[in-house]
Design a protein around this nucleic acid. Structure first.
Lengths: 207, 207
DNA sequence: CGAAGAAGTGAACTTTGCTTCAATTGTTAC
DNA sequence: GTAACAATTGAAGCAAAGTTCACTTCTTCG
């Protein structure tokens, strides 16, 4: 016998894997999935193309993991805010604001996560992602309907899906073409108006 | 001298051009721009690949024209409804309904026109398209603000952009993955709820 | 019919980017 | 040090799709 895997080697391998993931994330954040080629990821990570394939079965697998990690963070933040103990409409407003502000801060990444078409493996992650958001909003909507601040004559499943869709596109649409040109004040105005719009859409009219 | 272009030949050439455009449209309608290859367009049109290039400089040019034609129809329909002489909120409701119903009837085409990323030449058409919609909605919004049925504390430019974005994504989102599974009654419910949502978002709260 | 030139053809070319693999380098245990 | 095996490398292989072009077919007109 001769070679046996040691903790040191395992750690090094894992470090390389993480570096590849981090650089892939970086590329998606700066140019979307379309700009993230395997060759580029390898180059940025300081490894050969072949080495990427030692850590990931395929490009799809690599980017599915990038996607999963990025979305977990986003959904978690929004979920936290929605589950706070304040009134549901306040929670909703805050959640929308968090969503919007985070997306606007990284428009290319937001676009990549929300709308950019990619291969089916990554697309499957996106379905989970949208659903995860919608479920969290739906919970808050139902709470708000019980509390009386949200219209009782709405289907919370539909409203939550629409809310996710509305805010997503309202953000992605204006930002996608000229992603870098948006001053702070305009961004704040946009966030405020979007929150207002989404909230008024689900609120009890007279409330 | 010998060959000279005749009306007959000109008509035949034009007919082929139209056939190619129609088949390209058909392919986009059934599978989006991504599914529309030059080879496929040629095959469906009953001409050779090279012939497509006799009528169009490039794939981009061909599909830019497909896009332009398809959107002209849509924008015109919505514009007509918005410019009617009834109260602005009624006009808005009808316009949203028309938009939604037409999109739902051809979800793949709607997705292709609204959200599917394509090459820059087609993308430029999309900018015009979104703007054309937004402008028409904005006009109705301003009218409604004057008439008193829409919130005076909103930026009509932003609200109209958001409305276009909201309805677009609200439609595209749920339909994009399982584009063919939506019963008539569900579609009607969806349309109704979307109109309700969008309208309440811009309406005067107490109105 | 025959010459001139346009329309039509589709195989070959080109580009782009994912994936493989034979060869090289590095690590471990004795 | 060296045998055994893993990690790394990057050029070559491969696939998909847009574009070209030498060649054929068709149309016109004297």
């Amino acid at each position: 016998m001769a070679y046996r895997e040691t903790p040191r080697m395992r750690a090094r391998k894992e470090a390389t894997r993480q570096r590849i993931l981090a650089q892939a994330h970086e590329l998606v954040a700066s140019g979307g999935f379309g700009a993230a080629s395997v060759a580029r990821v390898a180059e940025e990570s300081g490894v050969a193309i072949g080495s990427v394939y030692r850590h990931f079965d395929s490009k799809s697998e690599l980017f599915a993991e990038v996607f999963r990690r990025a979305t977990e963070v986003e959904v978690h933040r929004v979920g936290e805010v929605l589950d706070a103990t304040n009134p549901a409409d306040q929670a909703m407003a805050e959640a929308l604001e968090v969503f919007a502000r985070r997306a606007l801060r990284r428009p290319t990444m937001a676009w990549a996560l929300i709308a950019e078409p990619v291969d089916p493996v990554v697309d499957e992650q996106r379905l989970r992602y949208r659903q995860a958001y919608a479920e969290r909003f739906e919970k808050a909507l139902i709470r708000g309907m019980r509390e009386g601040c949200f219209r009782p004559d709405q289907n919370p499943k539909l409203s939550s899906a629409a809310t996710v869709g509305a805010i997503a596109e309202a953000l992605v649409g204006p930002l996608s073409p000229a992603a870098d040109g948006l001053h702070q004040e305009h961004a704040e105005q946009l966030i405020h108006d979007i929150v207002q719009l989404c909230l008024q859409a689900v609120r009890t009219p007279g409330g």
